[in-house]
Simulated assay, not measured.
Amino acid sequence: MTNEQELKRELQAIQENHYAVPEDVDAYPYAQWMLDAIGSTDAELRDHLIYSTLAKWITNGVFREKELRGLLLQALSEDYLFYGIGEVGTNSVFKRAFSVLIPPLVLTVHKIKPFLSQEQLYSVAEQILEYVYLEKDVRGYIEGKGWAHATAHVADALYALARSMHEREFAIELLRAVHYLIAKHDYVYIDGEDKRLANVIFAVYEKYILSTEEWKNWLCTFVSPKASRPQDSVLLQNVETFIRTLYFRAEKESAYELKQHILETLWELEGR
């Protein structure tokens, strides 16, 4: 039996027992075993067992604060979040895309009972934003291997940061990061990435720390010259889908002033 097969069998038993930590198990070293296999190409192991178990254990108080910091640092390290960074079409994306899901879990705990310093929060934000601009493999579902979904996963991390940090300058950085993620010329998002990124935008919006002019200026960055190349058509499709998602989300959130600015942006996009 391989190491991954053994881990899979044990995690299936844990899942069947409602994610209770086995009596003979020290949770933190066991989490290291899970993290060692978080980049597996086995979708059931990676997604349904490792991530689900870590999510339950992290958010349900299994780990001490010191251990949560350790998991956070490990997930953000070169061997995890930046493992094989820049590669496209390889299996390294699974390790990166699932490592970036660990910070939002830890930040969920921090949101309820703060234990990270401001300096530590900024360090987490800095590394996640660096990952945004370095990740080149944005595939969603990969046949035979399951979800990579790096854009959606990093959107969850940005959302958690938006809820944890309250500085205006950082809010602007988040808007820039979302724009960068949407403005892809080489991949059409088809797996709900727009909805996950819209969560980030409205987490920023509900803080009311940016002016109307700043929101209008940000929306204007999505309006560019008419597409003349095939890759421009990909960009336009991603942008228009996202702006429509923002519009309906603004309607749902009763964000009427923002909705009007979004509508004006949509008119400009569709009028070209």
Rank of each mutant, 00 (worst) to 15 (best):
Thr41Gln: 10
Asn199Glu: 05
Glu44Ala: 09
Arg96Met: 06
Pro225Thr: 14
Leu35Arg: 12
Thr2Leu: 05
Phe94Ile: 00
Glu268Trp: 02
Leu174Gln: 13
Trp147Ile: 12
Asp186Tyr: 14
Gly140Leu: 01
Arg244Ile: 02
Ile128Asp: 13
Ile50Phe: 15
Gly84Arg: 00
Met34Ile: 12
Glu214Gly: 03
Gln260Arg: 08
Leu161His: 01
Val93His: 04
Asp156Lys: 00
Leu76Lys: 07
Gly39Lys: 09
Leu73Ala: 12
Lys111Ile: 00
Arg139Lys: 02
Leu266His: 11
Val109Ala: 03
Phe242Ile: 05
Leu107Ala: 07
Gly86Asp: 10
Arg249His: 09
Ala177Tyr: 10
Ser40Phe: 01
Leu54Gln: 01
Ala250Met: 07
Gly146Tyr: 03
Glu206Lys: 11
Asn17Gly: 11
Val204Thr: 08
Phe242Glu: 02
Asn3Cys: 04
Lys113Val: 04
Tyr80His: 08
Leu45Trp: 08
Gly140His: 01
Leu197Glu: 11
Lys136Val: 04
Phe248Gly: 04
Gly89Arg: 07
Phe170Gln: 08
Ser164Glu: 12
Glu251Val: 11
Leu236Gly: 05
Val223His: 08
His185Leu: 13
Asp36Gln: 11
Lys195Pro: 03
Lys113Pro: 04
Glu16Phe: 08
Leu49Asp: 13
Ser228Trp: 04
Arg176Trp: 10
Ile209Ala: 14
Asp42Val: 05
Glu6Ser: 15
Gly84Thr: 01
Glu206Ser: 10
Gln118Trp: 02
Trp57Tyr: 09
Arg69Lys: 10
Glu213Cys: 01
Arg244Glu: 02
Leu76Ile: 04
Lys207Met: 08
Gln260Pro: 00
Asp191Pro: 12
Ile201Tyr: 03
Ala152Asn: 06
Val62Ser: 01
Thr41Glu: 14
Gln231Phe: 04
Lys259Gly: 10
Tyr141Arg: 11
Gly192Asp: 06
Val106Phe: 04
Glu214Lys: 09
Leu263Pro: 12
Gln5Lys: 09
Leu219His: 00
His185Ile: 03
Tyr205Trp: 11
Cys220Thr: 15
Gly84His: 00
Glu87Gln: 12
Glu44Asn: 10
Ser123Tyr: 06
Ser123Ala: 15
Val138Lys: 06
Leu246Trp: 04
Leu129Trp: 05
Tyr19Thr: 14
Gly86Lys: 09
Val62Tyr: 00
Ile14Ala: 06
Glu119Tyr: 12
Thr265Val: 04
Ile172Glu: 15
Trp147Asn: 15
Lys66His: 12
Thr53Glu: 00
Ile85Gly: 10
Asn17Trp: 07
Thr108Ala: 11
Ile190Asp: 06
Arg69Gly: 15
Leu269Trp: 11
Ile182Thr: 05
Gln5Glu: 12
Thr53Met: 13
Leu105Glu: 01
Asp194His: 08
Glu268Gly: 02
Pro29His: 07
Trp267Arg: 14
Ala20Asn: 12
Tyr205Lys: 06
Leu174Gly: 15
Leu235Phe: 09
Asp191Ala: 13
Ala162Cys: 00
Gln260Thr: 03
Lys56Arg: 15
Trp57Arg: 03
Val154Phe: 05
Ala55Gln: 13
Ser92Thr: 12
Phe242Val: 09
Ser52Lys: 10
Arg272Asn: 13
His149Ile: 08
